[in-house]
């Protein structure tokens, strides 16, 4: 299969950036999207055409959350419940033009080409996405009883890999699905309930500070999440927020 690729090139955070067009040919339909980019880069380096295209990747099997490209108007490309590394070229037609852009958001500044800085997510987690527990050995799984339906919902929420597709898809660059997933995951478990009010306040305030947008309930995030995390987690986040509004004084910087 042959493709025309329009790829966003940007030398560094301060550069303006622009699209460059490259052609690749004889790509197997079983080739993954990132493998295709590897082939392109091989070409670019060997033929001294241009600097190879920078893009994030790691596990290449949909679990690490590193890869993330905005492909023809969809984060992670034209399929549901996948990451970019799980997208295969058979999802395209021979001769297609493919526009490849990085995640665009004020909170995710571009580092180089298609690589963006997602440390804002780490900062949100540092603000409260944890439980404060004296570490020691991990206790036996059934020491604290948790009903299966809560464990299931918590597990669904915990599947978030922090890729940022939700922010990329959202018209407001909101991180509500990401924050909602973490808050929901911990709010559903007894260990998380102890600090629930503090957690939601700190995480949401940090999210706002870092320049993420507000939710306007379009659910583009849910549609594009590679782990298919549902909007009900955002509803749970909103509930937790309302709860903490009435719960008393928690200074966000404590």
């Amino acid at each position: 299969m042959n493709f025309t690729l329009h790829i966003w090139r940007q030398e560094n955070a301060k550069a303006k950036g622009r699209f460059e067009t490259y052609k690749v040919s004889d790509i197997s339909s079983d080739c993954s999207f990132l493998e295709m980019l590897d082939i392109l880069n091989e070409q670019l380096i060997n033929d001294h055409i241009a600097h190879p295209v920078c893009f994030d990747n790691d596990c290449r099997e949909g679990i690490c959350g590193m890869c993330g490209l905005y492909i023809n108007g969809r984060p992670h490309g034209n399929d549901d419940g996948i990451t970019t590394c799980q997208l295969h070229m058979r999802k395209f037609n021979d001769g297609d033009e493919i526009w490849i852009e990085p995640w665009r958001a004020k909170a995710f500044p571009v580092i180089c080409d298609l690589v963006v800085d997602r440390s804002a997510f780490d900062k949100i987690i540092q603000a409260g996405g944890y439980i404060s527990v004296t570490t020691g050995g991990v206790p036996d799984a059934n020491t604290i009883p948790v009903a299966k339906r809560f464990a299931d919902m918590a597990m669904d929420a915990a599947e978030c890999i922090g890729c940022g597709a939700c922010v990329a898809a959202c018209k407001n660059a909101s991180a509500m699905l990401f924050v909602g997933a973490k808050v929901a995951h911990l709010a559903l478990l007894p260990q998380g309930q102890v600090e629930a009010n503090e957690r939601v306040k700190k995480m949401v305030c940090r999210m706002d500070e870092l320049g993420f947008g507000s939710c306007t309930n379009t659910y583009a995030c849910e549609a594009e999440c590679p782990k298919q995390i549902k909007r009900q987690n955002i509803a749970r986040l909103n509930r937790e927020w309302i709860k903490q509004l009435f719960s008393g004084n928690h200074k966000p910087n404590e």
Binding site: N12, I45, P52, C54, C112, V115
Partner: peptide, 13 residues
């Protein structure tokens, strides 16, 4: 081995 780019900038290669 050919490593394009330079040491000072972001260089995945």
């Amino acid at each position: 081995v050919q490593v394009p780019g330079d040491i000072e900038s972001f260089n995945p290669e």
